[in-house]
Design a protein around this nucleic acid. Sequence first.
DNA 1: GGTTGATCCTAGCATCGCTAGACAAGCGAG
DNA 2: CTCGCTTGTCTAGCGATGCTAGGATCAACC
Lengths: 192, 192
Amino acid sequence: MSIQERKQRERAERERLIVATARELAEQQGWDAVTTRQLAERIEYSQPVLYSHFRGKREIIGAVALEGATEMAAALRAAASAADGPRARVTALARAYLDFAERNPAVYDAMFELDGGLAFANEDTPEPLKDAFAALLESLGEVAGDGVHPALFTEVFWAALHGLTTLTRAGRLPPGDTEPRVELLVDRLAMV
Amino acid sequence: MSIQERKQRERAERERLIVATARELAEQQGWDAVTTRQLAERIEYSQPVLYSHFRGKREIIGAVALEGATEMAAALRAAASAADGPRARVTALARAYLDFAERNPAVYDAMFELDGGLAFANEDTPEPLKDAFAALLESLGEVAGDGVHPALFTEVFWAALHGLTTLTRAGRLPPGDTEPRVELLVDRLAMV
DNA sequence: GGTTGATCCTAGCATCGCTAGACAAGCGAG
DNA sequence: CTCGCTTGTCTAGCGATGCTAGGATCAACC
């Protein structure tokens, strides 16, 4: 048994290496640079090894997305719990979201821009993704206002943050005015 | 001179054909299916002809984006001018935006998701793009509220619409709840 | 100690965006 | 009218992509 266990351990370790390397490479040079050949060379294995762990590049992106979702959920909860009162909590949450996206653009892409083969918004959605949404809901639900469903409110607020993130990063919005945008968003949307 | 003029006319006509075909193919089968080979075959010319009109695939996407921007600006203005009062105007604008994106997903991608090699948010930005933003600004500026810069307000509102569009279409948000989302957005953001 | 099975790599396929160089068609000059 | 030249188009091919088939290698087991 012990030998098989060791092999399984090594296999799991290599899988982590693949995901970590893909993420690192994507953050350094963008997802376009994450080719199977480049990735294989970095982990010092041949290409087919990748396919013994993942069905293809899509699944590797998906794995990075799940890792990112876990981190994002933690970052959002940390920011929210450090703030006092609903209003400050929402502001901190929004800032943390935008900050995460800016600091981890490749991971953000894997989560929300690229096709990682993951299910969203249904019962098959992986736990980390649902949890990230839950992290948003926890702080946003309390400021949804009377008669507004917390989930609906969260969706709209999230969409606004996502829009700001992607438009800014794609150069569609002038950079730098993040703070007043966040203030406007929180001022208007949150029923403090 | 007449011969050269005829040639120029034919050349311009073929360029329109390329853009129209690319757009059609993208709407039918997605941008992934718009390969230079496929596109060349549809216009009944060889691949290199494409490169005598455009520097590459990016520029073709950019051309579709510009065409789309012109149409979107017109659609937004038409919807806005058919509504009575600022509040109704903003609602109509938002619906028109989401509707345009839903009905022309490939064009919307060309404008805001893909790299069409276009400049955004600076002085080099092509006129159609600036005009589409202006169309938003015209209706949104009047409901920005006191002390809020109209451009800033427009950016945030637009980002929200963009977020709703992309998240919904990428399957990140459950489809179908569009109407209540729009109502919430307008209710909260617009200072009627 | 030889057999078997898992593991990994070399080599290759089809397709992608893009381009060089050959070829033909139509123009102006003699 | 004919010849050379420009202009326009096509065939063929390059390097790179995601992915896979099939052979080699190495370690575990009877």
